[in-house]
Nucleic acid binder design. Structure first.
Length: 555
RNA sequence: GGCCCCAUGGUCAAGCGGUUAAGACGAGACCCUCUCAAGGUCUAAUCACGAGUUCGAUUCUCGUUGGGGUCACCA
C-alpha cells in the first residue's frame, strides 16, 4: 500500500526541504505596528496599463505612508503570453511616475532578502509546498486530458449546472493514493490539483478593506496548482509568494473578488494567516452607451505610454488618478496647492466601490493647472525632456536659444493667475511658432486672419503706417497701450469699446480692431497672449520689421 | 445562465434617519477685457423603481430593474 507521502516522494524525489525550512529562510519581517507590506505583481505581457498604474499608486502610497515596504514581483508563470523585455519596461515606466520600490525585481537586478522575485525562478519553493500538500492529502495528481475537461464543461453547460472541476465531477479526487502512485509511476501525464474540502452551499465571511464585510460561497473547486509546465498557477503562486514575502495587504483589481474564496481556503489549508485584501474597482470607459473596462486593445488611453508620447505631464495623470482614488483628494488639493502628493494620506473608506468612467477632460484640466504653476525653467526642462524623445524639431528650436524660449514661456506666467495655454508639452510647438523669425517669415500673408469683411487692405496699411509713426520702444504696458489708443483716434476709430458699441456709425471701428491689426501683423494670428509681452520678447526692432513687412505685402 | 460586486447631476462625487442634497470637471449665461487663455459671478442638471421599518427615508431591510465582474493547465 502506498500512502500520499509516497506519492509526494515519487513526484518530487529531489525535494528535501520542508516548509519549516522556508519559514526559517524567509523570517517574518520586523516592522513596526501598522506598517503595510504591499507589492506590484505584474505579468510581463506588455506595456504598463493605466489601471495597473492606478492600483500600484495606491499600493505604493499605502506602504509609504505607513512606513512599510513596497516591492515588485514578476508574475511570469505564463510563458506563452510573455513578451520579452516587457518586465524591464514596466519597471522603467513605474520609475517615471516616481514609484521606486524598496525591494524586489528591478529589471536588471534584484534587491531584498525574500527573493527570487521572479516566479519562474521560484519553482523549487512552490514544489516544496506542493509536496507537503500532497503528503498531507490536500493536493493530488489529476490525469485528465484537455479533451476530458472540455467534455466535462460541455456536459455541465448542457445540463445547466455550475461548471468546473469539483465534488462529484472531480474525476481523480477519490483516486486512492495507491492508484495515484501507480498512474504516476506508469508515466501517465498529470497536473496537480488542490483538494478542496469546501461546500458551495456554505457561506464564508470575508473582509475586504474597501468593500467591508462580504459573504461569499465557500470554495469547492479543486483548482490546478501546478501546470504541466511545472509552474504554479496564479492562485498558488499568490499564496506562497505573499506568505513568504510577508505581504500584509494585497491590492488588486476587483476581477479577483470571485476567486477570493479559493485563496482563503488555500491559506487555511497551509495553516497560514491570509493577508488583508483590497479589491480596487476597474477604470471604465463609455462604449456605445455601455460601460466597460478600459482595454489596451480598444482604448489608447489604457496604456500609460499614450500620455507620455502625447506629452501630457505625468503629474496631471497622477493627480487625476488620486482624484478617482480618494474622493476627498480634490478638496485637499484645492486647499494645499503647493504641497506634495506625499502629504496627502489616502484612506480605504474614501475609495469608491464602483469603477470610475475615465475622464479625459479632467486630466486635461489638471494638466493645464499643473503646467501653469511651474516656473519657466522647470517647464523648459520638462518640454526638452519630452521633445528629446518625441519631437526633435521642437528640441532643436528650443536649443537654438534656450534663454529666448524661456522668455516665451514666461509670458504671463509669474503672476497670481498664470496663463493656462498648454495642456501638454506637445502644444508648445504650435503655440510658439510665430516667435521665431524664420518661421514667421515663411507664413503666407494670405493666411493672416485680418477682418477683410470690415477693413480693406488700404485701411489696414494706413492704420499700420500711422502706428509705426508712433511706435516706440517703451517699457510699460500702459505707455504702449496709450500709443495704440492715440493711433486709434488718429485714424477715426473709437478708443473705448463700450462707447463704440453705443454709437457704431460714428466710427470706423474701435481700439480692439486696431490692436487686432497690430497683433495679426506681428504674430500672424488673431488670438495670442498679451501683445505687449510678445513685443517685449521678440524685441522692438523685430516687431517694427514685421509691421513693415505686412504693409509691403498688402500693397 | 450560475455566483459575486455596484447604484446620488453628462462625469468624479460629499452625505452616514430630519440638509435649501456640498464641491470639482464639463455645459450655458453675464462681468472683466485689445484678442485668446484665464479670472470673477451666476444658472441648468442627481438620490433607478417598488414594498417594508420609522413620526420621518437619499440614508436601514427586502425585492425589481439596470450596470459591471467572474466562471482556464491566463493572470
Amino acid at each position: 500500500m502506498k500512502t500520499w507521502n509516497d506519492v509526494a516522494n515519487l513526484i518530487f524525489p529531489n525535494i528535501n526541504e520542508t516548509i519549516e525550512d522556508l519559514n526559517k529562510r524567509f523570517p517574518k519581517r520586523n516592522l513596526k505596528e501598522g506598517a503595510l507590506v504591499t507589492r506590484f505583481a505584474p505579468s510581463p505581457t506588455g506595456f504598463l496599463h493605466t489601471g495597473s498604474l492606478f492600483t500600484t499608486l495606491l499600493c505604493y502610497r499605502f506602504a509609504k505612508q505607513s512606513n512599510g515596504i513596497f516591492y515588485i514581483r514578476l508574475e511570469d508563470t505564463d510563458q506563452k503570453r510573455e513578451i520579452s523585455g516587457s518586465g524591464d519596461l514596466l519597471i522603467k515606466e513605474l520609475e517615471r511616475f516616481n514609484i521606486i520600490p524598496d525591494e524586489g525585481y528591478l529589471g536588471d537586478k534584484e534587491v531584498g532578502n525574500y527573493g527570487p522575485y521572479k516566479q519562474s525562478e521560484r519553482g523549487h519553493i512552490y514544489d516544496i509546498c506542493i509536496k507537503e500538500l500532497i503528503a498531507k492529502g490536500r493536493a493530488y495528481p489529476c490525469f485528465c486530458t484537455q479533451e476530458e475537461l472540455d467534455a466535462l464543461r460541455e456536459e455541465q453547460e448542457r445540463n445547466k449546472i455550475r461548471t468546473g472541476y469539483y465534488g462529484f465531477f472531480a474525476k481523480y479526487k477519490q483516486t486512492s493514493s495507491d492508484d495515484a502512485y501507480k498512474l504516476v509511476s506508469e508515466g501517465k501525464p498529470y497536473i496537480i490539483r488542490f483538494r478542496s474540502n469546501g461546500s458551495f452551499l456554505n457561506k464564508i465571511k470575508v473582509h475586504d478593506e474597501i468593500r467591508g464585510d462580504l459573504e461569499l460561497s465557500e470554495n469547492d473547486l479543486d483548482i490546478v496548482i501546478r501546470k504541466n509546465d511545472n509552474l504554479p498557477t496564479y492562485h498558488f503562486a499568490h499564496l506562497v509568494d505573499d506568505h513568504f514575502m510577508g505581504t500584509s495587504l494585497v491590492m488588486r483589481g476587483e476581477e479577483w473578488l470571485p476567486s477570493l474564496p479559493i485563496h482563503i481556503e488555500l491559506f487555511e489549508a497551509m495553516g497560514w494567516e491570509a493577508p488583508k485584501y483590497a479589491h480596487i474597482p476597474a477604470i471604465m470607459k463609455m462604449d456605445n452607451g455601455n460601460r466597460r473596462k478600459i482595454s489596451k486593445r480598444k482604448d489608447p488611453e489604457a496604456a500609460v505610454s499614450y500620455f507620455i508620447e502625447n506629452g501630457y505631464p505625468k503629474e496631471g495623470l497622477i493627480e487625476y488618478l488620486f482624484t478617482i482614488a480618494n474622493s476627498n483628494f480634490e478638496e485637499w488639493r484645492n486647499e494645499n496647492k503647493d504641497k506634495n502628493l506625499e502629504d496627502f494620506t489616502i484612506t480605504f473608506d474614501k475609495i469608491s466601490k464602483d469603477g470610475a468612467l475615465f475622464d479625459m477632460e479632467k486630466i486635461k484640466f489638471l494638466s493645464k493647472e499643473y503646467l501653469a504653476r511651474l516656473d519657466a525653467s522647470t517647464l523648459e526642462n520638462q518640454i526638452l525632456d519630452w521633445a528629446n524623445v518625441f519631437n526633435k524639431e521642437l528640441e532643436e528650436r528650443i536649443l537654438s536659444d534656450k534663454e529666448y524660449f524661456k522668455n516665451i514661456l514666461n509670458i504671463e506666467r509669474n503672476i497670481e493667475k498664470p496663463r493656462k495655454d498648454y495642456e501638454k508639452y506637445s502644444d508648445v510647438k504650435e503655440a510658439t511658432r510665430y516667435f521665431y523669425k524664420d518661421i514667421y517669415d515663411g507664413i503666407d500673408i494670405n493666411s493672416y486672419q485680418f477682418d477683410h469683411e470690415r477693413f480693406d487692405n488700404n485701411l489696414i496699411r494706413d492704420v499700420l503706417s500711422t502706428y509705426l509713426t508712433k511706435f516706440s520702444d517703451v517699457n510699460s504696458e500702459e505707455e504702449w497701450f496709450n500709443t495704440v489708443k492715440e493711433v486709434t483716434n488718429m485714424v477715426g476709430f473709437c478708443d473705448n469699446v463700450k462707447e463704440y458699441k453705443k454709437n457704431k456709425e460714428a466710427y470706423k471701428g474701435h481700439v480692439g480692431d486696431i490692436a487686432s491689426m497690430i497683433r495679426i501683423s506681428i504674430t500672424s494670428k488673431s488670438q495670442t497672449p498679451n501683445l505687449f509681452a510678445i513685443i517685449k520678447v521678440i524685441g522692438f526692432d523685430e516687431a517694427k520689421r514685421r509691421i513693415n513687412h505686412v504693409i509691403e505685402a498688402l500693397k
